[in-house]
Write a protein that binds this DNA or RNA. Structure first.
Lengths: 339, 339
DNA sequence: TCCTGGCACTCGGGCAGGGCGAGTGCCAAA
DNA sequence: TTTGGCACTCGCCCTGCCCGAGTGCCAGGA
């Protein structure tokens, strides 16, 4: 177990290194932080911290830098989540309030996150699986062709063209539309199958029944299939702040960012609630071994419908980043709940 | 007027520089190209070329590199468009044939272009300016809140939430919905503004009129925004091949790539037909001053519905890039025509 | 008139050497 | 357990140097 002071030393090292991007030595530490001990003591502590694997020396006669393990300890035990300043909060609110539709919300969120954290932002579109249905619309395109439009409470809209087995009259259509909305409006996707099970039976005409069955099949299919996730990415220009050696660092990161699958997996690992921080080698994907990912779920109600996060160098301002990510996630949730 | 041989020297310089990324000297030139003259002669030619502004010396005792003007001459008069090899063509075909929908076509095209040219690819979604409206749907979300859903004949759906100045009754809503569809259903986007101009007047209640006006404003706005095209970008990892100095070069490029407006303008400058090559400072946007943009329109019929292109360093393989861009544009056109 | 070989010159890159200083580890004393 | 002192290490940076690629110029030749 590390003593209180040694933890304090580690915290100081992390803070200084994040600020200066340069290995930090014992003397500089005592000068910049009020540790109340001499450099020599700090040196001893550093030796212990190094032995334990929390910090490392890039080369023999240099200061120390935190290792992934060191950052992990810092995040887990030493760092709080820094709340945003009031002006920042207000800025978030103002910026997100102007959004006109879901794409816009996501787009603005990405830009906002990238700006606030000065890192690469990744926002997943609200998934359909946990959404509920706001409205189902049925339109007649041709006598035997319908269009099904599905509007979720997150503002997402999905549409399908349906070829019916037989022409479907306007009255039947209005009837079906009303019943459908009566049953599934406001309900969760997951609940829909049971709710519509017996709908076809309430129609007299066998042909109408067939059509209704087709429509329902399409509806259910849409609900299931459409959890194909989408992402939006922004702030890649912030990659240039990565470091000096960055051709080597930046390339795999750019590649990872283009591989949506990788990113989705990355976000997928986020726990249902609460913030997840993956530091360096904790990331399964190799190209991101020198980056950290801070991510969190967001949603319109109490529960998360999707995730968002940022990707940055392991040497990042964790409290600030976590604060920004959390705040943005909350506000986006609010916006989604309102619209 | 430059003599035939001097042009030949310029071509050799461009080719060598593109290949080696290093300033090319007179001796190396005569060794690698069969110019039939001695280094001394080449030196004289180079002096002339430099005086004319086609090439430049990075520093006094170094070889020459082409200037933007030099590349321009090269592209205009010295370089053909290099056709792709048969395997390459086949690869394009196979790759694009697997696409299932528009998003997929565009996505595959971007990846293809990026791979073939090893540069950053930009593909504009096919324009909707010639689309028409299939259906307009109005839903009541709350007493004074509506959702407008717009369905185009290309199957695209757009939605907007509208906050009304006053509550809008169900009957008025049904009325408006019917009138709206009666007027604009099946019509081209461009025709809509005139068609709905007098709609508010046909409502009795002043409050309803205000609401109708709001709805129409939102509708028109949506139509306009639809014209504002979408883009897909890929291959940003290729930016790492830019050069040695690249933190400085790459950053503005990444920024430009995130500014869709900039890119749209960039592509917008493409002539309707034929390929456009913008070299270095020919690009209006400052951040792209050290890049070249090769772009071309593509479309399903004879006419271009959108544009695509690549962004790369001015030092790029122009014939090869142009060949790839042209070939991809053609195949995409075919795919779109088929579907 | 244009091309060529020769020649002197320039200048950037790379390498070696040396001083500097930050930082370390160890030790003895408080 | 902490502290001050001290010797030591080693990377960084500056300097001076050499080397060679590349140039410009010139005089002689086709």
């Amino acid at each position: 177990m590390l003593s209180e002071r040694r933890l304090e030393v580690l915290r100081a090292i992390v803070q200084d290194y994040v600020g200066t991007e340069e290995p930090v030595g014992s003397k500089a530490l005592t000068e910049r932080h009020k540790l109340g001990v001499s450099p020599a003591t700090v040196r001893n502590d550093m030796a212990v911290l190094e032995e334990e694997g929390y910090i490392a020396q890039p080369h023999t006669s240099a200061g120390r830098i935190p290792t992934d393990k060191g950052y992990r300890l810092f995040v887990d035990r030493l760092a709080g989540v820094k709340p945003l300043s009031t002006p920042e909060r207000r800025a978030i609110h103002n910026f997100l309030d102007g959004a006109v539709d879901l794409d816009d919300v996501v787009g603005r969120t990405v830009r906002l996150l990238a700006q606030l954290t000065r890192q690469v932002a990744v926002v997943q579109y609200p998934s359909l699986t946990r959404s509920s249905i706001r409205h189902v619309e049925l339109l007649s395109l041709a006598p035997a062709r319908l269009m099904l439009v599905l509007i979720t409470d997150t503002g997402r809209v999905e549409q399908r063209v349906i070829d019916c087995p037989a022409p479907f009259g306007e009255t039947s259509l209005a009837d079906l539309r009303a019943r459908l909305n009566g049953r599934v409006g406001g309900r969760r996707f997951a609940d829909v199958p049971q709710l519509v099970q017996d709908l076809p039976e309430s129609f007299e005409e066998p042909e109408d029944r067939a059509t209704v069955t087709t429509v329902l099949a399409t509806l259910l299919e849409t609900l299931v299939e459409e959890h194909e996730e989408r992402l939006m990415i922004g702030g890649t220009a912030n990659l240039t702040r990565f470091g000096h050696d960055f051709p080597l660092t930046i390339r795999p990161v750019l590649e990872a960012l283009e591989e949506q699958v990788v990113l989705l997996k990355l976000l997928g690992e986020v726990k249902e609630s609460g913030m997840t921080v993956r530091i360096g080698h904790e990331n399964a994907y190799e190209g991101l071994n020198s980056t950290s990912v801070v991510s969190v779920g967001y949603g319109s109600g109490g529960e998360a419908v999707a995730k968002l996060g940022v990707v940055g160098p392991t040497r990042m301002d964790y409290p600030g980043t976590m604060g920004a990510v959390r705040a943005v996630a909350r506000y986006v949730g609010q916006i989604l709940a309102e619209s």
